[in-house]
Simulated assay, not measured.
Amino acid sequence: MSLSPDLLTRIRQAAHDHGGPRAAMLEALRMIQHDHGWVCDAHLAEAAATLGVHRAEMEALAGFYSLIFRHPVGRTVILLCDGASCWLNGADAVRDELQRRLGIGFGQTTADGEYTLINVACLGGCDRAPAAVVGRDRRLIGPLSPEGVAKLLEGGL
């Protein structure tokens, strides 16, 4: 399970564009995740070797960023904001309804592999509180309500 030649070329180009291998490490992780949905150990090691950096450096960087997924995630990732504005506007009720409908808690994936639910400190969508970011296209959705959760899960929001 190795990275595609195209992705390896893009990683090398990122090193050139971003001012060197270390400066391109996060971009390489982001590209791997975009193409594969998450960053497995083998892909991380291959990217580190391609950039000529230590694997431990890449692992430390990947571990620091909560949105670099080091384990498989669902086809649809829901990032639910638990910042102050969202909390004040009812995010707890939205969280409870999402967890009830999906049957999972934060950091978990549904049995069918469709959804992963992750709480984040702030999405910067305070004007849409309570808010979530949904899917690979990272759509900011809000304001959410417990009643709107069904629509969200059906892709209607």
Rank of each mutant, 00 (worst) to 15 (best):
S85H: 10
T110M: 09
W87D: 09
L98T: 01
G90S: 06
C86V: 01
E97L: 11
T110E: 13
V94R: 01
E97W: 08
Q99L: 12
E97A: 08
E97P: 00
T110N: 08
A84R: 14
L102S: 07
D112C: 06
Q99Y: 01
L98V: 00
D96T: 08
T109M: 13
G113F: 04
N89Y: 01
D112Q: 07
L102W: 00
I118N: 04
Q108D: 13
G83L: 09
A111E: 06
L117R: 11
T110W: 09
Q108R: 05
G90R: 12
I118A: 03
S85E: 13
Q108T: 06
Y115K: 10
D92G: 13
A84P: 00
E114R: 14
I104F: 15
T109S: 09
F106E: 11
E114A: 12
L102N: 08
I118G: 00
L98R: 04
R100A: 15
L88S: 08
T110D: 09
T116C: 07
Q99P: 02
L102V: 04
T110R: 03
N89H: 13
G103W: 00
G107R: 07
R100K: 15
N89E: 09
A84S: 15
E97I: 12
G105M: 02
T109H: 10
F106C: 01
W87Y: 08
R95Q: 11
D96M: 05
E97T: 13
N119A: 14
L98C: 05
G83S: 10
R95K: 11
W87M: 12
Y115C: 01
D112A: 01
G103P: 06
L98H: 02
R101V: 13
G105N: 07
R100V: 02
E114W: 03
E114P: 00
Y115A: 00
A93V: 14
I118W: 00
Q108E: 15
L117P: 15
G105C: 02
E97F: 08
L88M: 12
R100Y: 15
E97S: 05
A111V: 15
L98M: 14
D112T: 03
E114S: 12
A93Q: 14
I104E: 14
R101H: 11
S85C: 04
G105A: 10
G113W: 06
Q108W: 02
A111Y: 03
L88N: 08
G107F: 06
R95L: 12
C86Q: 11
G105D: 13
I118D: 02
N119W: 07
R100P: 10
V94S: 01
I104G: 12
L102D: 05
F106S: 10
G90T: 09
E114Q: 13
G107C: 02
Q108S: 07
L88I: 03
G83M: 10
A91G: 03
Q108K: 08
G83F: 06
N119C: 10
D92R: 13
A84Q: 11
A84K: 11
G103A: 13
R100D: 14
R101D: 10
